[in-house]
Structure formats: C-alpha cells, structure tokens
Design a protein around this nucleic acid. Sequence first.
DNA 1: AATGAATGAGGGTTCATTCAT
DNA 2: CATGAATGAACCCTCATTCAT
Lengths: 214, 214, 214, 214
Amino acid sequence: MPRLTAHDRRTHNAERRRQILRAAARVFADRGYATATIENVARAAHVAEGTIYNYFRSKEDLLIHIPRHIAGPVLEQLAALPEVDTAEAAERALIAMGEAMVERVSGNIRFVKVFLSALPHLSRPAREEYMRLMPMATAGMLEAHLRRGMERGVYRRDLDPAVAGRALPAMIFMITLGQRVFLGRRMTPSMSRTFVREAVRQFLHGALDQRVPV
Amino acid sequence: MPRLTAHDRRTHNAERRRQILRAAARVFADRGYATATIENVARAAHVAEGTIYNYFRSKEDLLIHIPRHIAGPVLEQLAALPEVDTAEAAERALIAMGEAMVERVSGNIRFVKVFLSALPHLSRPAREEYMRLMPMATAGMLEAHLRRGMERGVYRRDLDPAVAGRALPAMIFMITLGQRVFLGRRMTPSMSRTFVREAVRQFLHGALDQRVPV
Amino acid sequence: MPRLTAHDRRTHNAERRRQILRAAARVFADRGYATATIENVARAAHVAEGTIYNYFRSKEDLLIHIPRHIAGPVLEQLAALPEVDTAEAAERALIAMGEAMVERVSGNIRFVKVFLSALPHLSRPAREEYMRLMPMATAGMLEAHLRRGMERGVYRRDLDPAVAGRALPAMIFMITLGQRVFLGRRMTPSMSRTFVREAVRQFLHGALDQRVPV
Amino acid sequence: MPRLTAHDRRTHNAERRRQILRAAARVFADRGYATATIENVARAAHVAEGTIYNYFRSKEDLLIHIPRHIAGPVLEQLAALPEVDTAEAAERALIAMGEAMVERVSGNIRFVKVFLSALPHLSRPAREEYMRLMPMATAGMLEAHLRRGMERGVYRRDLDPAVAGRALPAMIFMITLGQRVFLGRRMTPSMSRTFVREAVRQFLHGALDQRVPV
DNA sequence: AATGAATGAGGGTTCATTCAT
DNA sequence: CATGAATGAACCCTCATTCAT
C-alpha cells in the first residue's frame, strides 16, 4: 500500500526533476557540457549520483530536457509589441522591448552557455528546441510589429521586415553575449540602458544625416 | 648528424606545426573540442599520435595556438573602409564591407565553431585572443569610418559610433551563425547578397518613414 | 494488534516466500543469475523490491533456496524401478523410466538453466544441493535396479552397475540439454519417444552383432 | 618510419591477442563470465586494462573469440576411428577414443566452464560456435564409425547410429562434467581408465545377460 | 508488512599522454 | 624525429541494498 497518493508522488517527482535539471543547467553552464560530470551535477543537486538516473536516462537526457523545463517558463513570456502611430511611440515601444531583451539574455546567460557548449552533442531536433528559446527567436515578433507599422505608415514602405526585424535582436544578443559569455564581463544597468536607447535610435533613424541627398 | 641546415629544420618544423594545427582546427570544428580526440587529429594530419606531442605540449596547447597560426593570417586582412562624402558612396562602401564580412564569416565558420565549442576550456587570455579574430572585431573599423563620416557631415552628428558600429557586424554575424553553425544550413550567395543590401539600407536610412515627424 | 492468528501468518509467510522464489527461478532461468536483477524478480513476483528483502537476505539467498523450495517437490517424485525377470520386462521398465526422465528434464529445464548459470556463484554445499536434484541424480536408482537384476540373472554378472547406471541418465540428460538449453530448440514428443526406445535398446543389447565372436 | 616490419608487428599482435585471450579464458572459467572483471583479466594477462581494448572491442568480444583462438587448436585434433572387423578391434578402438575424450574434456574443463557461465550472454551464432567445440560434437564421428561397422557386420543391423553414437560421448562428458565442473573434484587417471573400459564394454555388449531370451 | 526512492560502490570503457624502439 | 602500443585515471551508468513512510 503506497504511503503517498498518486498525486503527491507526481508532484514530488516533478519537483525532483526540476531540482536536478536546475543543477545540471548550472553545472553545464559553468564547466561546459562535455567537461561537467554526473558527480558534479549530483553534488550541485544535493543527491547521490544514482538518484539522477532515477529521473533521467542519461547525461544527454539531462541536456535535452533543459530547454523544455528550465528555460521554457522563463523565456516564453515576453510582452507583444503594441501597435504604434508615431515615431515617439515606436521609440518607446522598442526601447521597452530592447530592455526586456537585455534582461532576458542576462538572466539566461547560463542557458546560452549550456547551448553553446553542448552544440556538438545536440541532435538537430534538440538544437532546434534550444534555438527556439534563444533570444534571437524574438525576431519574429519584431518582424510582425514592423509589418503592421509599415501598413500604418510609421515605417518605410520599402523596408525588408525579415531583415530589419533581425537587426535589433542581433545587436542586443551579440553585445550581451560578447560581454558576458565570451569575455565574462558584466554590464552595469546604466550601461545597458544607454546602449539600448542608442541602438533603437540608430535602428529607427538610420545612420545618415537626413540632409544628405539619398 | 643533422642532414638539414638549421634553417631548413626550422622551416620544416614550422610547416609541421601548421599542418597539425590545420588538422586540429578542422577536427575541433567538426566534432567539438571536447569530443575530438588526439587520434582524430593525428589521422587528419597524417601523423602518428606521438608526433603531435613533439610539436605541442597538450591537447589544450593545440587549441591555444589555433588563433595565432591558423585563423590569424586569413582573418586579419580586411580592406579599410574608404572615406565617403555622399550617401551613395556610403552605401556602396558598406555593402562591399558587408559582403566581405559574410564571406569571411562563411569562410571561417570552422574557426568560429572551434571557438564556441572550446569556450568552457579557454583561459581568459586565450578567450580574448580568439575574440580578437572573430568577425565582430571589425566593429572598431566601422566605428572609425562612422566617426570620420560624422565629421564630414555624411552621418548624423548625434550618432553613437560605438553602438552603431556594432550594429552591422552583429547582424551579419548573427544571421550567418544562426544559419551555418546553429542550424547547419547553408546560404546561397544570392540570399546573402540580398540580405547584406537590405541590412545596409536599414542601417543607413533607419526604419522610420521619413515623412513621420520625429 | 495482529489481525491474523500465528498460524495464518506462518502460512501467508510461506506462500509469499514460494511466490517470490518461483518468480526468481523463472527470472534466473530466463536471464541467467548474474544478469537478472532484483527488480526483474520483484516485477515477476508482483511485489516491490523492498518486499523481497523481508523474506530473503540477499540475491544469493534467493538462489540458495530455489532447490529446496521450488525444484524439490517436483523433482523428487520418480517411481522406483520394479524388479524384472525377463528382457521384455526390463525393456518396458526402462522405457517407462526413460520417458519419465525426459519429461522431468523438459519440465525442469528452467531449474537446470538456473543451476548452470549460477554455477560460479554457488558455494560447494549449495552446488551439491542443486546437484542432488539434477536428473542425473536418478543414476543411483538405476544402479540399484541393475544390482537386483544381476542377482536375478537378468543382467550380465560382469556389469559395473555404477558405470552402467549412469549411461542412460547421461544420454537422456545430455541430449535434452543439448537441444533445449544449449541450442534453444524443442523436441517433439514423438521424437523423444523414439529416442528413448532406441537408447534403451542400445543400453540393453549393446552395439555388437551377437553373432560376432566376443 | 616504423621500427618493426609489418610482419613482425602482425606476429607480435597475434601473440598479444592470444596472451590476453588465454588470461580471459582462465578468469572467465574461474569466476564466471559475468562476475569476472576486465581488471581481473588485465592482471592475469599482465597488462593494463586499457591495453585489452587495443586488442578487443569489448568484454563480450573477448568471450566470442575464446572458442576460435583458444579452444580451437586443442579440440579439433581427434584421431578418426579406424575401421574394425572384430569385437576385440572395436573394443580397442572405442577405448582409445574414450580415453582421448576424457583427456580432452579434462584438459578443456576451463573452456567448458566458460561456455556454461556465459550461456545467457551468448548470441545464437556464438552459442553454436562454442557448441561445435564441446566434446559432444564428436558424436558425429562415432556415428560414422557405427554405420561402417554395421555394413561390415560388426555392429547390429537394427542399431540407430544417431542415438547410439551419442551414448558414449554423453556418458563420458556427463561424468567428467559432474565430477570436475559441478562438484569441483578431480578424477585420478586410473579411475577414469576403469570408467572408460567399463563404459565401452557396456556400450558394446549391452546390459542384458546373453542367455536371457530377448 | 509493503513500498520504492535514494544510495554509492563497482565495472566497462575512453583517451590524453608517455616512452621504448 | 617519428611511431603507436601501453598505460591508468576518470567517467558514465547499473543495481543490490537500505530505510523513511
């Protein structure tokens, strides 16, 4: 006769999985997937090595489940861009989105690192699942926003939304990555605020002096 | 009894090192640094495993020398941007640079892959050495070009050259990376030409419809 | 507060032990003792792993108790050979015994397999306990029968009953083993009947043509 | 430039394989395949654990190669039975064969033990390869001898050679197995000589007193 | 008494590195 | 210098056993 009800067990089980996955994400990010050992993960999760195998079939299984159960909940929520009618409104909306993105990337640096370190070990489907959660995936949202703004006359008619939609996420992602992941530096909030504002202005107004004939 | 002169020996030695490093770069890129074995490298270099240790102290030593001896010569050459006086000239110059960058990134995908896969294994100095050769490093060149253009009245006076200078490299790098490294896809030359032209136009003219009041 | 009388409890306890041992015998036979896991046994017995340890001290303890509680009752019953006065009666009696043996071996292939697979794990006493129940152990019965038959003039006076008594069991055991255990094949009833009759005839009359001078 | 010629290397390689296989056969026989560890084998072969994997792909690979390279050379040589015309000649020939078999089985007890302990791990082809080398496999030779003897009038016309041909090998194998493998006892040479002689006599003359009417 | 999650020792296997030839 | 067999530390994973519930 089971001491716990089926429901209790399921809850406990799910919590344990999350506890282990969180530890795995942390360890994989710090040491790289290949270099991290199951013992590292076990210690980080405060369980014995064998316990991990009661919840996951293999080290690779841990890796595969990280995007679904760890990053997912955090990354998926990103407010849709509002419709805008004026340049000011556009600027405000994009700055808000830009700052949200910086926060998101900074908050999930760990996840990005896991992804990069694990690249050679990921099957194509797993790679795509990771990709879906990378900050660049927001490009689609910006693209839709641009399309609507083009119809309303806010954005240029001859804009290529697929390309332009990638411009801002790429900048934000690359800079953050460059600083945090590649060089291991931190950005102060004021630095990143300035950076976002300038990037958005450049994005909206272009680099050219308007008085110059095109 | 040396059969070769000292000079010959040095030449032979240097060639051997390059031969092994090239093989290592290839193998590390294909399998990831951690997954690649010394035997893989030895086979690719057509030498025995032991021979590698006559030229490099360890597997990590191979990794560290890759940027200096393999990528360096290839990556460093990128024509400086000319000074421009008109929007058309600016567009032409930037498109040329953009296409050169795409080519560079595509041609050195291998090097980028090595860098990404080896990230958790690189010391900070080694990481910085790799970074110096990443395509994003061209940002500085673009920044200088923007500064000069601002003085000459081609670019907006209120531009932040440090931010704007990163915009174009970030886009080009991200897109190429996303396609080639993360998803394993190729881009056709015509796709990338279109993409560069649109990216440059967006960069120069901004996203806003000019008739919209700022 | 015991809900069952002491007797009930003892009965229940004994039944549980048998249930678990039967499962263990089945699993050990199918997968081999070393390859079988306690989880396999638990599932086969429809109990939890921990329950097994309420009835047996260890995996090896299961192995040791199999002959005493599982095979014993089944194997021990084998009708004694009748006394005979004629060749025909001897042939009838031996054929009956031979067919009983084939049936016994076939019906206890599982037990034989457990024994063989566990050989390297059995202590000498355990090994002897298993041996006592192997079909070859009937040799003693046949030996006694031969001795009595020799006295009554049915069997040759110069027979070595210890050797001859082993001949028939050996044949029957080896052939059945070879087919069922080693090669995994089955024997049809008619095949085994023919085989027993021929083996008995060979046993009784020898291989030599009687007209050949000895 | 290789220090050793290709021929030398091949010889050395083959010797190493044999050295390791012999150790494996010894260890597998003593501890059982499943219980034996690679470290056990390595120690027995006086090499490091890793070395074994330079010659065999896996533990199972060792098991599979044992019959081909260890037992093979020893077991395959067993003199064919001569043609005989008299009962005395038959007896002499069969005693010689019987003693050869006892020697063979005794000398390859190790091999038999490996086979038995590894049964649950062997694929069907591997099982058959092992079987081919088991002493019982000589049954075919005896069968042919009986057929020829039947034609020449030495053996009874109504003999079933397939059954009778198995009788002697079965006896010899079973008894030796029972003593050596199952009980771990040794047989003295004189014991086994007596046993073989009696077994052959029983085989040839049958158990019945000749004066008894059939 | 029954359960099954937790444990961790132990085993097969890989691979960077060494070194005798 | 070149070679590649030998080495053994380290890792992933299994599973007998324990114990809190």
